[in-house]
Simulated scan of single mutants.
Amino acid sequence: MIPPLSTPALVVDLDLFDANVDAMNELLQGTGKTVRPHVKTHRTPELAKRQLGQFAVGVTCATVGEAEVMVAAGIHDVLIANEVVDEAKLARIARLAQFANVMIAADDPAPVEALSRAAKRAGVTVGVLLDVDVLLHRCGVVSVPEALALARVIEGAPGVRLDGIMGYEGRVRLHTERRDELIAGAYAFLHKVRDGLVAAGHQVDVVSTAGTSTIREAIADPFVTEVQAGVYALMESELLVMDLPFRCAAAVRGTVISRHPGHFVADVGRRVVGVEYGPPVAVGIEASAVALSDEHATVAIAGTPPALGSQVDFIPGQIRTTFNLHDHVWVSRGGEIVDRWPVSARGASQ
């Protein structure tokens, strides 16, 4: 039996979520490319499973903990798109590879060698995507010679396998200055590394990249094989201005707890909604401003405020941190709550 919904509550509209998943598959139809949804977006296995199938062959995770939760839920193909250097975590990855196909990102020989030792002890093989710094200047090799040296280490180490390369260009917003030039430059360097590896005799089966803001560019690129986007299935209001066939499928539902001329207050604060990209958007309300404190959203309006005790949905500005603030997500069909699922990887950042 589904318990009664008490606000503030995170709610996903499954009709919209499934439509977004279908829209991604339509974008990929006939391209020969796949999507590996990034589950850091929601950390919810039940949602991740709904994204699999057709052109989605597995999931992308940000942490070892996320990968463990997804594999325990029955997902058997995971990429940890992050550098892992801690030997205890590398041992966990090796154990995980006993139950699933596991890949990780790497940009330095030392953790590859440590992973090799752990994989050898566990009797498994772990795939490696050579991480390339294409735009963010965060992680990743920065030159073809560095990539070649790392590839030689990977290919020479037992228990690990060079599966390809990856590079993340970050969120490149619609109005980012020199947007097209930045994305083209990022992919050009990814091509350069790929070509250098292939010329040296290395097999590069996977070229993995892109977030939701660069989906169209990744699909148009001739060398990209896999898209790592995650937000597309739930969306954020900031991305709605882009030419993408996705709609916002998640909201934090709140209750109006105070009302006055010119504004009302709902029980939706920073403890339940991510605000890194700005305040949430009140659905169906012509708000001139939304101000958040720990437990409250104060919504400025010109007209009559909604009734005391009525409910208002708020579309989060940052969907990923929003999910990590909730133990459960409520799911709806046709406007009716039909289930409640655990955000099982909430807090699984280790």
Rank of each mutant, 00 (worst) to 15 (best):
D243K: 15
A119P: 07
P8T: 03
A200F: 05
V128W: 05
T34S: 14
S6E: 15
A291M: 13
L244I: 14
F55N: 04
T212D: 08
D327R: 15
D15Q: 12
V207M: 08
A291G: 08
S288M: 07
A110G: 12
A184Q: 13
M103Y: 07
A67P: 03
P306Y: 13
V338R: 10
P222D: 02
A56V: 11
D267L: 04
R194Q: 13
R340M: 13
M103L: 08
H296K: 14
G254C: 13
A81S: 15
A48L: 01
R161F: 09
R247P: 02
F223L: 07
Y232S: 05
A81G: 14
L27D: 02
Q350V: 07
I93M: 11
M24L: 15
V71I: 15
A118Q: 03
V312L: 13
L234T: 05
R138A: 04
V64F: 05
D339Y: 06
R271D: 14
N324F: 08
G32A: 02
V39S: 05
G335K: 13
D205R: 06
S332A: 15
L5H: 11
A81Y: 13
L14C: 08
R121F: 08
R259T: 10
P4W: 06
A23S: 15
V329Q: 08
Y277M: 06
T7E: 09
A72F: 02
N101Q: 05
